[in-house]
Design a protein around this nucleic acid. Structure first.
Ligand SMILES: [Mn+2]
Ligand SMILES: [Mn+2]
Ligand SMILES: [Zn+2]
Ligand SMILES: [Zn+2]
Lengths: 158, 158
DNA sequence: ATTATTATTGAGAATCTATTGCAATAATAA
DNA sequence: TTATTATTGCAATAGATTCTCAATAATAAT
């Protein structure tokens, strides 16, 4: 099932109605793997002459989250940023405090943390969000500093 | 050094000026370990007759973050929530999707993830934010469901 | 196909959060 | 004590999101 089919199934089961506007929004979101926000999505569609009102975009986003197509990634510059989920492996984010760049990385160890916490508390853990902060290599170079090597660090770089 | 002393040092070194308003804000924040937002902080102070304008609170928060006294914890209900840092051990948060409750927990394994990422990318990692999502025991009971036990789960509960 | 029902749309108004301009005040240094 | 200027409170403003409402259109029923 692709994203459109998933959404059609979702609206049917929820007693909602599908519309061309919603499918245009979904198609635009799944064109790239980039993070996005409401305004850039709105302007993208506007430039492509398939203009959709901001109200409709704001009203569609909760449906896309509910149907598992997208999720919130981070809040920045006064508004939320999203990414699509379907067909995009789960990953974590590193944010460079110097240049603002976001780097994605996969990390299976977080699953162990989920399980450990779930066991010890008797809770059901359905997901997580992990964000690392720091400085990317370019920003470290720019400052003339190399990465701080901690004493517990291995010396060989893999 | 307590929080007031840390802040006095910070304003001196930054060429700013300390004020009674700022110290009242800091004292209120460090009265409890609860998460807080601007509005509850504002109303708390208003009720205690040491009213301070919202503008001053908004202007003070970046200074408190910069001086390491507080940090952003999560964005919810359309605005940011904070917690104080000094004298409060670093921890992660579990958010119950049923009742909205936030549960704090400590988790050293994230440090390993930081180091691993730092080594493999040559970045400097200065911090992280880990949030788990799911359902707390009370919410699972309310739904008549127990926690799903995955096949990889150990059976003995520690 | 036609009709009835009602969810959805777009435009703008309203709301809410956060920032900013400004005159009065007050913290620091001279 | 005086001079300098950061800070304050208030109100105005900006920006993000939600809401109102009339027109439209997706679905179900006939
Ligand atoms: Mn991502
Ligand atoms: Mn906390
Ligand atoms: Zn960078
Ligand atoms: Zn709960």
């Amino acid at each position: 099932m692709n994203e459109i089919e998933v959404f059609r199934k979702y609206v049917k089961e929820s007693g909602l109605r599908n519309t061309p506007e919603r499918e245009v929004i979904i198609e635009e979101i799944f064109l790239t793997h980039d993070h996005f926000d409401v305004d850039t999505l709105y302007l993208c569609l506007k430039n492509k002459k398939c203009s959709i009102s901001k109200a409709s975009i704001y009203r569609t986003i909760p449906l896309l989250i509910e149907s598992g197509l997208i999720k919130e990634v981070f809040f920045e510059d006064g508004h939320m940023h999203y990414e699509h989920v379907l067909g995009h492996e789960h990953h974590c984010h590193f944010r460079c405090l110097g240049c603002g760049r976001i780097i994605e990385f996969k990390q299976d160890e977080v699953m162990d943390i989920e399980k450990k916490f779930s066991r010890s508390h008797g809770f059901e853990v359905t997901g997580h969000k992990l964000e690392l902060f720091g400085y990317c290599r370019e920003c470290l170079k720019k400052q003339g500093k190399d990465r701080k090597i901690s004493t517990t660090d291995r010396v060989d770089i893999d």
